[in-house]
Design a binder for these strands. Structure first.
Lengths: 130, 130
DNA sequence: CTGTGTGTACGAATAATTTCGTAGTTCAAA
DNA sequence: TTTGAACTACGAAATTATTCGTACACACAG
């Protein structure tokens, strides 16, 4: 069973929900409006569809419904990563990582953080097969 | 001017072209057939559209046209990476990298390779601002 | 010459996504 | 109580992507 990735419009909604926590359609639409023009009913429809798909859950106890995501941000990130990994990088995580860090303007702080993370990974690898 | 990312079907075609070099529709379709069922004219149409979009170039000098990609694999990878980075990781390359390496079964060899790469990156960072 | 195999062109059906108008409900202020 | 603002529901248009059937061109074997 492989997970499905949210569409672009859905991801925009999820990003707001992950950042702000459970929100109403109006709140989401308000945030999205900062980035681009988008009608209220457009956002509403997207969120209704997401609820039907099982991406969101909504609390209907008050007249103004409150939505919250059903998937963790990190799980969604992983799913999307895996898709990119397999569709564009032939499954090679190292190629992907180097592409991500390559000509990008990653800060030294970030690079240090990654190296620390990498050392941990290598540490955990000791005693493993392969 | 921001670059456009190929669709899923287009990416499948590009993957074959990058691996095999300039090819005919039949050759591409043959390769794609190994993975999934796909009609010849479907592949043809996709490649015609890609040519119209400027993703492919074709040599019509022989009756059987020969197609080749107009974008480098690495450029396309970067473009797709950037899109994922901005749409799902808030632009944080380190989050993305750690997600990629996290619970994934990356081999020790790969991790070593990445660390080497990382050290180079840090080396080049010396004397830079930030 | 004629049929068969291999090609391309093109239109159209289908599907998925995104966008938004309209209708109807509810609540509360005037 | 009437009115208007804020909501939800729903249908449908617009867009993009995917898939494939059909038509027609060309080459070459028989």
């Amino acid at each position: 069973m492989s997970k499905s990735t949210p569409t672009d419009a859905e991801l925009e909604v999820l990003n707001v929900l992950w950042a702000k926590g459970p929100s109403t359609v109006r709140e989401i639409n308000e945030m999205l409006s900062h980035e681009k023009e988008v009608g209220y009913t457009t956002t509403l429809k997207i969120m209704q569809i997401m609820t039907a798909k099982g991406l969101l859950e909504r609390d209907e106890s008050s007249r103004t419904h409150v939505y919250k995501p059903l998937m963790k941000e990190s799980d969604t990130q992983r799913t999307m990563m895996d898709k990119l990994l397999n569709s564009a990088f032939g499954g090679s995580a190292s190629k992907l990582v180097m592409q991500a860090l390559g000509n990008n303007k990653t800060t030294k702080a970030e690079l240090d953080e990654i190296r620390k993370f990498l050392d941990d990974q290598l540490e955990n690898k000791k005693g493993d097969r392969e």
